[in-house]
Nucleic acid binder design. Sequence first.
DNA 1: GTTGGAGCTGCATGAATTTT
DNA 2: AAAATTCATGCAGCTCCAAC
Length: 231
Amino acid sequence: MTHTSTYTLPFATPLVRWDFGRREKRFFMYGCEEGQIAHCPNTGSMMGLLDAKAVWVTPYPVESGRKLLFGAEMMEMADGTLVGINTHLPNKLAAGAIAAGLVTGLSGDIKIEVKFDAKTRFDLKVGETWVEVKNVTLAEGDVALFPDAKTERGAKHLRELQGIVEAGGSALQVYMVQRADCTTFKPAEQIDPVYAAALRSAMAAGVKAVALGCTLTKHGITVDRTLPVVV
DNA sequence: GTTGGAGCTGCATGAATTTT
DNA sequence: AAAATTCATGCAGCTCCAAC
């Protein structure tokens, strides 16, 4: 490959920057000034992101009916790195990136939130390949890490993907790295060794894994490169 | 009888706060 | 010290009723 295609997901309106105050009770992001309260759309622990110097928020229209008129989208770290925290976006980003041809060896119709059986659904199905997407926000140096907290579910998903491959199917795990300062991806061995082992096992069985890197601005998120997955 | 949609309930989420 | 509660939101899975 001599060049890489990209995919950009623009924000509906440009984000607004607040000096970061604190996160409270899971759902609230406070700026430093009076009245700066935003909904936090990230269900995770957000490890490493809560000493940010700023939070970038998207304004919601009054007629949206939301109680909070802002939603947090990105954290700005001390070194200026922007980290996307909206856990609803990775599926769209992955679908767009795949459609744009960023992931080699994948083709066919892209469907979102596809039922696998009565209990399980996967984030995407591309042609005959089942795809699970994870949002990555944690990094150590230039290494992106997942998960940022123990995730039994995540390991379960990997075992399911492995089951698909062992039954003769095709499966892919996508890590959507919503920050621009990483050059490789690794499972977070220290945080969740069970997950790391499950990833190695799945990959050995033939589950593909790819990490996609993003560049973020107040106008949108661009998926612009792949990162090597090192296990 | 069958289908579709509106509208409701309940679940899931993590951590601080409050109650027991 | 442990258990329950709270917070906003999205979504799955219901029910109910109207339109065929």
